[in-house]
Design a protein around this nucleic acid. Structure first.
Length: 787
DNA sequence: CCACAGGTTCTTTTT
DNA sequence: GAACCTGTGG
């Protein structure tokens, strides 16, 4: 059964589209209309395969645009796909459903809001909105926030939703869980009352509607002939179940679900991603053959060798080895630095060298495991005047002043949105204090109504102030009737007092600029989306798409939904870029996680120390370590030409100095691909890192290593020990020194952290990296100093 | 209501 | 080290 005209089946006819594809890519692009699994290694041309396949399907008349659904995880990936497609195809790409999981859910729910039991203008809570909503529930239940940490409760709720469990479905084993489920239930009621949904709810609500409504489900199954899923290894249980609703397994109805993924790049298990979905998919859909894309078009040989060797240590793999036709290229440079400070200094020198050599700064990436590591590097870059760009800070729509403005805008559309109400009811201050709000919340709870609806019941001074606030909202709503989006926002900024507040605030200038930027963003949004669309960029004809059971056109008139609702949705779903100077030629700084999917000519992976990378919190179990290794694999495979790895003996973390051992990953890389810039084991964890550094700068230090290859035995000239450190130097025991490396027959290499006691009571604290930090009795433990 | 001091915590993160 | 929360005093 097919509601779209479909052309005759076409063989892989010669077509300019298919030129220059390798045999595996060609097989993937022209795979038959049946379930298929593509194992696409890093840099194997995955996006190209996906887009080419869509174009090929359309060009050969196998499907019409409306029959295509392509799902990604990030807005960026979705945009990339759309951009590439629009250059490949002679027609508008709008009829296809291409977007993120959440974006498509939103599109779906906007069309079926009635059946999904949502208000038409439902709003989407972002991560921080969700936490504050949960916090309110916990407060209202008078629970201990120590025991029920809002953020953790949020993880619990999201976890339940991702398992498609409503409060009634959760198995309660203990009191803690019982209360958590109660919070979950109350949170759900609260969201429903306020007409808001969180990210997980977008998925779950769509899933349930498809599951429970056969007419809708069958409609979409008939409609979508070809479904393509990117980054399949990152799907969670619910997302996979959601996909099955659109294209059920084991049903021979001519639908094709094509999953593309790389189990080796699965780095989001910690937030519910199930790599196992790939194996499940293969089994449940009876995939006849798995196509492996192993030809890498990105990196040189040494880099790929390192990646292959490293990942081969993982036990749970579908199995895949990258290969390249490019030569070996430069070896991977390895630098040991005395301190994080020195590491940053080294990065500066390297980057200056690369830039002198003609490399664009934006082709250089500095990667780290955790955000906290960026600070030292940033300050070094700043001091040396190298432009840089940090990814992953606060993003545009997450800035406080922007969220305030958005809260006012949301209240215009939906005054029952208590989250927004509370955010701005007293900002700027209107004499509405905690006590007043407490009373209001009690009244709201007692009557089961929203805060806004409960204002009229309030008396006294607080009540008067509250009434002034709701009057402000109401009058602004009236005032902005018929205005353009731009005018509405400008009006709100003025009447709310936000603009005035930041105008008088002594450091409000920047915030004011961001509010201006919000107006611009809205303007750009309207221009880009055009007015032929309603909320969330859904073409109007699509809402009213004939044959979609129960699809509800906007209001009774079929009018275009307000651009404001569309813009608010856009703001939640796409937190926006976090940088103003995006176009500038700047060095790129980011965590390894956010580097996934990107590539650079030169990559620096920094902070390769036990406890940091692999991270200590991930090392407790086997799966955690394997995920860290995949993370390292992702990091390595970002590099096209030059890759450098670095680690430090000491690092400031959480305000205190840590002595580090180099990451175990160094032992898992092929020696032949590495070039050590510093001699190995030259003295670990020196507590005098900075003094050494300064001594080095004065001319002592390591001699004769410049320009050499790997230095096995270099002359280490002991720099003079500064007087200020004399005290610590006496901190010795039988050749052992605090801050120096030691060797233990069982635990291996470590760094001596502390020496205590005398004689038989003498004890030593040693950081053995992967074996942890241990206290040892020196009368028993055989510790030998490493020179 | 607000400004400030102290205590606490601290992976990774898109939507 | 810094961000975030809570409690105190004006």
């Amino acid at each position: 059964m097919n509601s779209f005209p479909v052309g005759p089946a076409v063989d892989a006819a010669p077509s300019p589209l298919l030129k220059n594809l390798n045999p595996e890519q060609l097989a993937a692009v022209t795979a038959a209309a049946e379930p298929a699994l593509i194992l696409a290694g890093a840099g194997s041309g995955k996006t190209r395969v996906l887009t080419t396949r869509i174009a090929w399907l359309l060009n050969t008349g196998q499907v019409s645009p409306g029959g295509i659904m392509a799902v990604t995880f990030t807005n960026k990936a979705a945009k990339e796909m759309l951009t590439r497609l629009s250059t490949m195809l002679p027609f508008n790409v709008r009829g296809m459903w291409i977007g993120t999981f959440h974006g498509l859910c939103n599109r779906f729910l906007r069309a079926h809001w009635k059946q999904a039991n949502l208000p038409q203008a439902f709003q989407i809570l972002d991560a921080s909105d969700t936490v504050s909503a949960i916090k309110r529930v916990i407060k209202a239940m008078k629970l201990d926030e120590e025991r029920f940490v809002p953020k953790q409760v949020g993880w619990f709720i999201a976890g339940c939703k991702e398992d498609a469990q409503r409060p009634g479905d959760v198995e309660v084993r203990d009191d803690q869980t019982k209360t958590l489920v109660e919070i979950y239930a109350n949170y759900e009621d609260q969201c429903q009352r306020e007409g808001v949904v969180d990210f997980a709810e977008l998925m779950l609500r769509s899933y349930e509607l498809l599951r429970d409504n056969a007419a809708i489900r069958e409609h979409y199954q008939r409609r979508f002939r070809h479904l393509l899923v990117d980054e399949f290894q990152d799907t969670n249980k619910l997302q996979y179940a959601w996909l099955k609703m659109f294209a059920p397994p084991g049903v021979d109805n001519g639908q094709s679900l094509l999953a593309v993924g790389d189990d080796d790049q699965s780095i989001y298990a910690f937030r519910g991603a199930r790599v196992g979905n790939m194996a499940d998919f293969e089994r449940e859909y009876r995939v006849r053959k798995v196509i492996k894309l192993e030809q890498n078009y990105r990196s040189f040989g040494h880099i790929l060798d390192a990646a292959n060797e490293l990942i081969s240590r993982n036990s749970q793999r579908l199995g895949k080895t990258l290969r390249t036709d490019a030569g070996l290229g430069d070896p991977i440079r390895v630098q040991e630095a005395p301190s994080d400070f020195a590491e940053a200094q080294w990065l500066i020198e390297e980057i200056q060298g690369l830039v002198r050599g003609g490399l664009d700064r934006q082709q250089i990436a500095i990667l780290y495991r955790s955000n906290a590591q960026s600070r030292v590097i940033e300050s070094a870059l700043f001091n040396s005047g190298i432009p840089y760009r940090v990814y992953g800070g606060l993003r545009f729509f997450e800035r406080a002043e922007v969220k305030h403005a958005l809260a006012y805008l949301r209240l215009l559309e939906n005054p029952n949105d208590d989250t927004s109400f509370l955010r701005v009811v007293n900002f700027p201050t209107r004499g509405i204090g905690a006590k007043t709000l407490e009373n209001l919340q009690d009244a709201a709870k007692a009557s089961g109504r929203s805060l806004y609806q409960s204002v009229s019941a309030m008396s006294g001074k607080g009540g008067a102030n509250l009434l002034a606030f709701t009057n402000l909202i109401d009058s602004t709503r009236n005032l902005t009737q018929g205005m353009t989006l731009r005018e509405i926002i400008e009006q709100v900024l003025e009447t709310s007092g936000l603009a005035d507040f930041y105008r008088t605030d002594k450091d409000g200038a920047e915030r004011l600029e961001n509010l201006d930027e919000l107006v611009n963003a809205a303007e750009a949004f309207v221009m880009q989306e055009g007015f032929g669309k309603n909320a969330v960029g859904l073409p109007v004809d699509e809402v009213a798409e004939s044959g979609t059971p129960g699809a509800v056109p906007d209001a009774e008139t079929g009018e275009i939904m307000s651009p404001l609702v569309a813009f608010l949705t856009h703001a939640s779903l796409e937190a926006g870029d976090n940088q103003a100077q995006a176009g500038q030629d700047a060095v790129q700084l980011m965590t390894v996680h956010s580097a996934k999917g990107l590539e650079f000519d030169a990559v620096f992976i920094t902070g390769l120390e036990e406890g940091l990378f692999p991270h200590e919190n991930a090392m407790s179990d086997h799966n955690g370590l394997e995920e860290e290794r995949r993370l390292m694999y992702v990091a390595i495979t970002r590099a096209r030409q030059k890759l450098s790895l670095s680690f430090c003996q000491t690092r400031m973390l959480h305000g205190q100095t840590r002595y580090n051992v180099k990451s175990r990953f160094f032992d898992e890389l092929p020696e032949a691909a590495l070039k050590w810039l510093t001699p190995r084991n030259q003295g670990f964890g020196s507590g005098f890192a900075r003094e050494y550094q300064q001594a080095w700068d004065r001319g002592s230090g390591l001699k004769g290593m410049v320009g050499a290859g790997r230095v096995e035995k270099a002359a280490w000239v002991e720099p003079p020990v500064p007087a200020s450190m004399k005290q610590k130097v006496s901190n010795e025991h039988g050749g052992l020194r605090v801050g120096k490396g030691v060797f233990h027959t069982k635990f291996g290499e470590g760094v001596l952290l502390t020496l205590e006691g005398v004689g038989t009571d003498a004890r030593a604290q040693v950081n053995f990296g992967r074996h942890g930090t241990k206290w040892l009795a020196l009368s028993v433990a055989k510790l030998t100093p490493i020179d």
